[in-house]
Nucleic acid binder design. Structure first.
Lengths: 110, 110
DNA sequence: AGATTATATAAGCATTCTCTTATGAATGCA
DNA sequence: TGCATTCATAAGAGAATGCTTATATAATCT
């Protein structure tokens, strides 16, 4: 890993909202519309964050029907470091359980 | 550590030039004018990087005569993570040995 | 086919970042 | 005391960042 790649990696995870996204993805894979609900942000904002994370190799996407399911790229060389850092953070305010209660959890694998 | 603090930390180390600075400091403490020579950057640019690193608690300073000696803050909670990340990087082009050869190494503790 | 849903992308704007040059403050030396 | 050295800070320019709104694309449903 050279200086440019490490800078890109650290800039990729060095943002409050992307850290919140990664905290969610640490527990389960989620689609864009679920992240939009969880973070209470607009859909384009989420998509742009995901692209940045993807460019840094931190997450991977899987198209399933209309949805794009995002998950942590467990094959990233610094995946263990990422998990360590994310484990320092408190649980985010809105949980996936809240989504389920509100009937907003997507069941795209059904 | 909350989301804001982790963002500040990652932004602190998420810059090519600051990574180069930290790579040098991993081996030995250095003053501003030495870093200016090693990185081939202007003195204010170095000072501004050091302030950013200091604000994030990543480095600590010690005034000695005319010089400000900077070192890694080994008491930072994420110091082990930092060392791990820095160890991924190749050795920088200009070395402290080059400085000595050129007679530019400061001996402020003499 | 037409309408709906999920997502990506483009353009615009405000903020932040990182450098530059200029200047100020403090220390040590002649 | 006067001067050189070291460093910090301020102000400004240009690029990058992260949002917004608007629009395009693709898949699904009726």
């Amino acid at each position: 890993m050279d200086y440019i790649a490490l800078e890109q990696y650290l800039k990729g995870i060095g943002d409050q909202n992307r850290l919140r996204i990664l905290t969610y993805l640490m527990h389960e894979s989620l689609c864009v519309c679920e992240l939009t609900e969880l973070l209470e942000m607009t859909q384009p904002a989420i998509s742009q964050h995901m692209r940045k994370l993807k460019d840094a190799g931190i997450v991977s996407e899987e198209k399933r029907g209309r949805w794009t399911i995002w998950s942590l790229n467990v094959r990233h060389p610094q995946y263990p470091v990422l998990i360590h850092l994310l484990s320092l953070l408190p649980a985010p305010g809105r949980t996936v359980e809240d989504l389920i209660k509100e009937g907003k959890k997507v069941m795209c694998d059904a």
